[in-house]
């Protein structure tokens, strides 16, 4: 049952890694950096009778970027969707195992998926702005159902502005907040979706191949954004692009046909993979 024995023991250990960066990463509080924000234990995810995620265990450190890589169809998106209980929204699906977000089991009895998702934001492969809403209302969309919402109009405006600034979109849209979100370019739409997710101040944000449908320039902007997001929020990003994982993440998980093959500091995984399958993948021999 425990196929990922080589990973599981290490996965529970809180990684104490700060990947070397060209720019100095801002100092983090030791208490937050040392605690894993997302812990998956013996996680299985099914579509009908087919297991798409098989017995995966790992721990994503808080306020760091964790990348999940692997060939397409390896279950990396499914794994990500288990972390905010989105997997169960598709018909005929099932999740087994345990996921803890900041110490709270999100599959525990009586736990509301809806509330979990307010704490664990998600951005999808293709930009999904709400077409009937203005830019402003898109950012504010999540606030309408959030537990803590700004009480005053001014407070709301501040929150919107802050979210757009964090998503690096403020300068581009501040003069046309009431335009349709559909008027934005693909890359801008994606950053709007990130702003929308950030506005409700999630503790963790999940990015499901956020640059897959974007041009190189937009991709670069999103990558810079992800790099800076770690200062305030825990990020888990799924990507099929190994260079992207190497550029933005602190830790990387390599997934193959639903199994977690290797989970290590990004530098270590890419320079000295322990598993031959990882090595085969990152050297481009398959996938």
């Amino acid at each position: 049952m425990q196929q990922s024995t080589e990973v599981a023991p290490g996965a529970r250990v809180i990684p104490n890694v700060v990947a070397p960066r060209p720019v100095a990463a801002p100092a983090r509080e030791a208490s937050t950096a040392d605690k894993p924000a997302v812990i998956a234990s013996d996680l299985w995810a099914y579509f009908g009778d087919t297991a798409a995620v098989k017995d995966v265990s790992f721990a994503a450190p808080a306020q760091a970027v964790t990348a999940i890589i692997g060939p397409s169809g390896c279950g990396k998106s499914t794994l990500l969707r288990c972390l905010n209980r989105m997997h169960e929204t598709a018909p005929n699906t099932r999740v087994e195992g345990k996921v803890e977000i900041l110490g709270t089991s999100i599959y525990g009895e009586g736990t509301s998926a809806t509330v979990v998702r307010r704490h664990v934001g998600m951005v999808f492969q293709r930009p999904t702005p709400f077409p009937t809403m203005s830019i402003r209302n898109n950012v504010a969309a999540g606030l309408r159902v959030a537990a803590e919402r700004p009480q005053s109009r001014a407070g709301l405006q501040d929150t919107i502005e802050e979210a757009l600034k964090r998503a690096g979109l403020w300068e581009e849209v501040k003069d046309r907040l009431d335009d349709s979100a559909m008027a934005l370019s693909g890359g801008q739409q994606q950053r709007l979706c990130i702003a929308r997710a950030l506005a409700i101040r999630p503790r963790v944000i999940l990015l499901d191949e956020p640059t897959a449908s974007l041009d190189p320039l937009s991709t670069q902007k999103i990558e810079e954004l992800v790099y800076h997001l770690r200062e305030t929020v825990t990020v888990v990003i799924v990507t099929h692009n190994m260079q992207q994982a190497a550029r933005v993440s602190d830790r990387t998980a390599f997934l193959l046909v639903g199994e977690l093959v290797e989970f290590a500091a990004t530098n270590a995984l890419f320079t000295a993979p322990k598993d031959p399958r990882t090595e085969a993948y990152i050297t481009g021999r398959f996938g």
Partner: peptide
């Protein structure tokens, strides 16, 4: 209406009915 919009709303913490 694309499923992606529904998912986007669910991921923001919208209950199903909203």
């Amino acid at each position: 209406v694309p499923t992606s919009l529904r998912e986007a709303a669910l991921a923001l913490g919208y209950p199903k009915w909203r």
